[in-house]
């Protein structure tokens, strides 16, 4: 069993990554993933959004990478970012809950399942479902799923990385699937 990398080893790996060593960066992100997963698990529990939050934190670490100075503790820096993203998620979660738009997250594929019966016209339903998304999510879903653009094209036009676009659309599709299922269950009552 390999031991966890030390703070100094991680700081050194980050220093190499900032100098352009892609392999060191890949190894660093792989090494910190279980640490961050454990951190999020302690705060959110065995949550079906655990992987989403983990990916949010990895993206945030990537975006904030220029603020790391190898004179300081890497783990402290990393966990400060993870803590911030978890709190940010909880703030959004409770804000949505207070606004009455709280949705659970289920499988993505059910959105286009033919057995899904909706009481209203499909276009109206689709527009209503899209309104439950944030403006950014709505734009990305419209560009990718309706207009057919690739994640790379969407990322280029919105100033986001391809990876970030895919994470956003993945979450948005889960939200839409859940909303559609709720509408279906109301229609059947």
């Amino acid at each position: 069993m390999t031991s966890s990398p030390t703070d100094q080893q991680l700081a050194e790996a980050m220093r190499k990554a900032q100098a352009g060593d892609g392999k060191a960066y890949h190894q660093l992100l792989t090494d910190i993933t279980p640490l961050i997963r454990g951190f999020i698990y302690k705060r959110l529990g065995d949550h079906n959004e655990l992987e989403d939050r983990l990916q949010d934190v990895l993206l945030a670490i990537h975006r904030a990478g220029h603020t790391f100075n190898s004179d300081r503790s890497f783990l402290n820096w990393m966990f400060a970012i993870a803590d911030y993203k978890v709190k940010d998620h909880l703030r959004s979660h409770y804000r949505r809950k207070a606004a009455g738009t709280q949705v659970g997250l289920e499988a993505v594929a059910e959105l286009s399942a033919p057995q899904l019966r909706l009481a209203l016209d499909d276009r109206q339903t689709l527009e209503r479902l899209l309104e439950t998304l944030s403006p950014r999510e709505r734009t990305i879903v419209q560009m990718m799923k309706i207009e057919g653009h690739s994640a790379r094209d969407v990322g280029n036009s919105l100033g986001m990385s391809e990876g970030a676009v895919k994470v956003v659309v993945h979450r948005a599709m889960k939200t839409l699937a859940s909303q559609a299922r709720q509408e279906d269950s109301h229609a059947n009552q």
Binding site: Q18, K23, Y25, L58, L59, R63, S161, G163
Partner: peptide
């Protein structure tokens, strides 16, 4: 997207260069 795929993409983009000290 799988986390491993995200890591591969981020590694491909590369770590950002360090900014000047605060």
């Amino acid at each position: 997207m799988q986390t491993s795929d995200l890591i591969s993409r981020l590694a491909h983009e590369g770590a950002p260069k360090p900014a000047p000290k605060a």
